[in-house]
Design a protein around this nucleic acid. Structure first.
Lengths: 139, 139
DNA sequence: ATTGACCTTAAAGTTAACTTTAAGCTTATA
DNA sequence: TATAAGCTTAAAGTTAACTTTAAGGTCAAT
């Protein structure tokens, strides 16, 4: 299989596959006498693993140690994998907290804005300052 | 007030304040005869607004139209502000959905991993492929 | 007078995950 | 045979929000 076919089967663009190879995520494939890369079905699996890890939010650097050359050479041990999963889980939870807070603040802001608007008071660019007072009472 | 004092009062580094100025987020301040930037308390307010908008997750580009030179020149209208808020709210909600899904998938993955581990089966790097099968049954 | 803190500018560096460009082979099709 | 599609490389470009660097001028205190 050449790179174009692999791209078609995985939905990952050919130049992205080369980029992954350059980052060590994908083992260097054999070359035909023309210099073209030659892949087997196994490469589809490797790329699928990368896609999965990406969907879970892992960075390519994480993925490098999860499914890259190193990982394949050493064999992937459960402890290390678990560590990565827990680390990512904590990241996700922090992000969820931050975003949940943001959502609440934006809604609160909208509410204040509507009140001001109905009162006909035109604060122009000061609404954000206003919110700052609501949220951060030191001002 | 010179830039260092403004930096101290807002907690924003002096070079970041200059950077904001270069992006048009902050109006160009007057200069002393030595060329130093001279700020008034109003600048503290502007920077506070920027900080608030950032805490809500707005990009500097958004902030530019919210509190930047243009916004101040035109006067900020409620419709436009509301539009920005709603757009950001939708973004936040999409992110929350994505992250909630990721969290569930990672937990599911951990569960599977523990099961495999207790069974003593050593799948090495294939766990991610395994997860892929669980989640994306076309393989 | 000199040391150190503070100020100035413009430009380059940082990180992530690609994408684009340039310049040139190879292969398949009409 | 010609042309279009596909392959090769290396290097530069992209976006965001800064940070760092370089090279230097100014100010306060000892």
């Amino acid at each position: 299989m050449r790179i174009g076919e692999l791209a078609k089967q995985t939905g990952i663009a050919a130049h992205t596959i080369r980029f992954y190879e350059s980052k060590g995520l994908l083992p260097k494939p054999k070359r035909g006498m023309n210099g073209y890369r030659t892949y087997s079905d196994e490469s589809v699996q490797v790329l699928s693993r990368i896609q999965t890890a990406q969907r879970l939010g892992f960075s390519l650097e994480d993925i490098h140690s999860l499914v890259g050359e190193k990982a394949n050479a050493n064999g992937l041990d459960h402890e290390k994998l678990l560590g990565h999963l827990d680390a990512r889980l904590e990241e996700v939870e922090q992000l969820l907290n931050r975003l949940t807070l943001q959502k609440a603040e934006i809604k609160e802001f909208k509410k204040q804005l509507e009140i001001n608007w109905q009162q006909g008071s035109c604060m122009q660019a000061d609404e954000l300052t206003q919110l700052n007072k609501d949220v951060n009472p030191k001002h």
